[in-house]
Design a protein around this nucleic acid. Sequence first.
RNA 1: CGGAGUGUAGCGCAGCCUGGUAGCGCACCUGCUUCGGGAGCAGGGGGUCGCAGGUUCAAAUCCUGCCACUCCGACCA
Length: 443
Amino acid sequence: MRLSRYFLPTLRETPKEAEIVSHRLMLRAGLIRQQAAGIYSWLPIGRRVLANIERIVREEQNRAGAIEILMPTIQPADLWRESGRYDDYGKEMLRIKDRHERDMLYGPTNEEMVTEIFRAYVGSYRALPLNLYHIQWKFRDEVRPRFGVMRGREFLMKDAYSFDIDEAAARIAYNKMFVAYLRTFTRMGLTAIPMRAETGPIGGDLSHEFLVLAETGESGVYCHRDLLGMPVPGEDVDYQGDLTPIIAPWTSLYAATEDVHDAERFAREVPEEKRLHTRGIEVGQIFYFGTKYSVPMKAMVAGPDGVERPIHGGSYGIGVSRLVGAIIEASHDDAGIVWPDSVAPFAVGLINLKPGDAPTDAAAEGIYERLTNAGIEVLYDDLDNRAGAKFATLDLIGLPWQVIVGPKGIASGEVEVKRRATGERETLSIDGAVNRLVAGAGG
RNA sequence: CGGAGUGUAGCGCAGCCUGGUAGCGCACCUGCUUCGGGAGCAGGGGGUCGCAGGUUCAAAUCCUGCCACUCCGACCA
């Protein structure tokens, strides 16, 4: 993509409403535009990052055996009356009427609707286990939206729903999502720690929140230091096999958010040198809720014995739009965002230091073409700007690799390749630079 | 929802107290000179001063009401 033909509205000064670093950087780097409290438009760079995160989430959900569907944002109120949540949900639910004065709502979540779909088509234990997910915009009319996309009212969420014949089977479904979440966040360059969470009326131990560790996170976190280096399964993980040996090490060590923290237990279970007190951002939550929706909504299947019984359900959320902010909180420096390779809006930023200078143009255009042909996403700064402005903009938007092409280097056939995360620079021949990037930035 | 605060050009702000031609920096447009870490000079465009009412010869400025947004707290992917 040529910058001269792109839409990348960056800001030199920080809009005053932005207090936290990810929000400031998202506004300055031109990822989002606020339209109302907690409601944002996604500009081209932001849209690309969001799509990359979505892609990783989708790949890992699919790998774990979940099946993608797409449910609407607008739902009829009747479904929610069935589950009893229409009255319970309160003012957080955005309620609207259509032209026929029918009660509708902008979905804050989809348990009711997915249960309706399930019960319409599935009547036998033979169709189980089943896990359906979608990635869709949600709306929760938060009292106080804040921190940009970290706590928006409208947000993009992946929500999966599992259906099983009994609790034992549901636990297996739960474990699959547990492992998928570990992999998902790791692939985004994040350290996310599962922490035991409140389970609501069902009880048991089947709910975990996944917290990304970041100094600027919104909740305080206490955990065992060894959780930081805990191995995350590779993509060859066998989801059909027993996952408990993978999960056990994660759940056996102390990890809690501030609100459920037990100082006494922390002191007793974690040796002093292993105690870690830091901050984190909740990016996912998984839980088992048993028959909470299947009973009132009559989602029944016949077992092998021919007797109908309510299915055991679980739901599994990932805050996709929140992750954009969380990744920035976890990965930035004074100059701007430092995108992990896997979610970066472009892999390479190519700077032409002197557009209009024939040899420089030829070299930059050549590199642009070769990288693009190799399947690498390149943002090519061909604007007639001062070098300083180009460097500042590129650092701000945080692309993993920078290639700097200027007349001085080109005179001796050389360009500079810079790694954004480490600041390492190398002076290479044009061929050397192209080869380095094809190897480093992937195809 | 309790507390605090802010609305003046895309962004950051001054002007308001003490009413009298709506300003500054960045960004944007034109020209020239520049060009290896946010260039210089000259010229230029862009505003219902959040909205509505009131006071006044005259309101960004004073008064009243409303709206929006932000921050702190309680709640949440």
